[in-house]
Simulated scan of single mutants.
Amino acid sequence: MSELIVTNIEELKKNATQIIQIEDFSGEGTINVRVKRLSILGLCRKGQIPNQLLGTIKGLFYGGSRNLPSMDLKEMGGLFDIISENVLVEPTMKQLEEADIQLTDTQKMQLWAYSQQGVEGLKSFRKIAEDSLSNINGKNVQTKAKPNFKHRK
């Protein structure tokens, strides 16, 4: 039986981030971003999440990304901004703001899903995208209208 060896700090640093694809700004393609997983409880502990959002966090944390609790849209927007800021490594939210680029709601939801479930959390978004593109080639679209005489008077 081999002895377990502690993973060194350099290896941990390499594995701390990941490049993932999120929806692009048109909603038709993807962009690559470097992200890191985070601990929402850690953000709460560090005081990075304002007290007024702690109830919202509790609802999201225990409800999961699919069962968003009813909440004030302003609170939800603030919360997803905090999550996005802490998940994005490259580009950073600051870099995006300096370039006058705002993430879309879907992109923020994808970053939230990644923060909680890793790449698995993005699968539901991929399924939605595939379903919306399934008839993009138009092969299943009727080319000519067929007359319907049974309703003529």
Rank of each mutant, 00 (worst) to 15 (best):
Q142F: 00
P147F: 06
S115V: 04
S124Q: 13
I101H: 10
K146E: 14
K123R: 13
G118K: 09
P147Q: 07
S134A: 13
S132V: 09
K144C: 04
K108Q: 12
V89D: 09
F149Y: 09
D131S: 06
V89I: 15
S84M: 02
Q107D: 10
L111E: 00
F149E: 06
E85F: 08
L103Y: 10
E120Y: 02
Q102G: 14
A99M: 09
M93W: 00
W112A: 12
I128A: 14
W112K: 06
A145L: 14
F149D: 05
E97S: 10
A129V: 07
E120Q: 09
G121Q: 12
K94I: 10
K144D: 13
A129P: 03
T104G: 02
L122Y: 05
T143L: 07
M93K: 05
Q117Y: 15
N148A: 12
Y114I: 03
I136V: 11
I136S: 15
N148W: 10
Q142I: 06
I101L: 11
V119A: 04
A129K: 11
P91H: 10
D100I: 05
S115C: 05
T106W: 01
K144W: 06
I136D: 10
E120T: 02
W112P: 00
F149W: 04
S132N: 14
Q110R: 06
K108A: 07
E97G: 02
K139I: 04
L96C: 05
L103R: 12
D131K: 12
P91C: 07
F125S: 02
K144Y: 14
E85I: 03
L122D: 08
L133T: 03
L103F: 11
